[in-house]
Computed example of a mutant assay.
Amino acid sequence: MRVMVMVKATEQSETGQLPSEQLLKEMMEFNNQLVEAGIMKAGEGLKPSSEAVRVHFSGKDRSVTDGPFAETKELIAGYWIWEVDSMEQAIEWVKRCPNPMDDDSDIDIRPIFEMEDFADVDPDGEITRGEEQLMNTVAGRNATVEPYLFFGGTCEEALEFYRTAIGARIGMVLRFSESPEPAPEGMVPPGFENRIMHCDFTVGDLTIMASDGCNEGEAPTGFRLTLTVPTEVDARRLYDALADGGTADMPLTKTFFSPCYGQVTDRFGVGWMVMVPGQAPPE
């Protein structure tokens, strides 16, 4: 289940007073623990209501009021979005949180509605499908697309050709023998140990990624588009959307270069690599 964890505002936070260096360090450590546990999905601190505005709705009328707002106890100074197994788990994590204020403070935990909660008012699933499409659109708008070429054993020659022919700038080059993790047995053809597992080169303003791949003689027409998204949730959402009517070539999994990476060919035969950015391979 997802929950919003809200740090309630206090008179101190409403003055705009920044937290101490010690508190910032303690909160950073707490956030690191949340991330390592796979619980934290988002979180931000909010500026005081003196920098906010409030829009009031009355029928078709709208009115705007500048802050600050008097109801301090009803205001929020910060929030997290967590993915937890239960409300009890969320409570235990909140209890571990450093006091976010110098004085007494409160943190509220509110469950977030999921689409299944609306099943009674959406019996045919039309609203659910619309929401799924909307979230796919949001995830796609946050993505970047980059070309990835497979040269079937001639990647090194291609890099040199592009360097001399069109002034390509060669970036990182990682060979199969340099991989931090061994490839699955039988994946890499004999004699490919010193071939290029991954590299990048830049032509003009475009950075292209490339590899020898694992099939000797494979033509560079066997390309994939790299779809990079900020979160694992987005990766899984877009991977499933592309796989609908297509082929899941490599399930999403954690690798040494990405916390979530997979390959899929869509229904039109276009190959994609969906990934969340992570620590880059060593140069």
Rank of each mutant, 00 (worst) to 15 (best):
147 P>T: 08
89 Q>T: 12
234 D>A: 04
279 Q>C: 07
57 F>D: 05
56 H>M: 14
183 A>V: 12
186 G>A: 09
191 G>E: 11
205 D>E: 13
71 E>S: 07
57 F>L: 08
170 I>W: 07
221 T>E: 06
109 I>M: 05
253 T>P: 03
172 M>T: 08
6 M>A: 11
182 P>W: 02
208 I>L: 03
151 F>I: 06
98 P>H: 09
249 D>V: 12
152 G>H: 00
181 E>T: 14
55 V>H: 07
136 N>D: 05
194 N>M: 04
274 V>W: 07
5 V>E: 02
212 D>F: 01
163 R>H: 15
161 F>N: 06
146 E>T: 14
225 L>A: 14
255 T>S: 12
159 L>H: 02
91 I>G: 10
86 S>R: 08
75 L>N: 03
140 G>V: 01
26 E>N: 08
174 L>Q: 14
209 M>H: 05
107 I>E: 12
111 P>C: 07
271 G>Q: 13
228 T>Y: 02
152 G>F: 00
57 F>S: 07
52 A>Q: 09
32 N>I: 02
47 K>L: 02
228 T>S: 15
268 F>R: 02
277 P>L: 05
215 N>I: 15
272 W>C: 10
211 S>W: 05
24 L>G: 11
246 G>A: 06
59 G>M: 10
126 E>W: 05
278 G>D: 07
115 M>H: 09
118 F>Q: 05
187 M>P: 00
232 E>I: 04
176 F>C: 01
87 M>N: 04
201 F>S: 03
275 M>N: 14
248 A>F: 06
55 V>R: 01
77 A>C: 03
56 H>V: 13
77 A>W: 07
86 S>N: 02
13 S>G: 11
234 D>H: 11
283 E>L: 10
247 T>P: 03
107 I>M: 13
196 I>A: 04
77 A>F: 11
272 W>G: 08
182 P>N: 10
175 R>V: 04
113 F>S: 14
181 E>Y: 06
166 I>C: 13
150 F>V: 15
62 R>A: 07
222 G>F: 12
227 L>N: 11
210 A>Q: 01
4 M>W: 00
56 H>C: 04
203 V>S: 12
119 A>M: 14
120 D>N: 05
64 V>S: 00
30 F>G: 11
258 S>D: 11
58 S>A: 12
228 T>G: 02
230 P>N: 01
239 Y>R: 03
134 L>M: 06
119 A>Q: 11
88 E>T: 15
176 F>W: 04
189 P>G: 13
69 F>I: 08
62 R>P: 03
68 P>L: 10
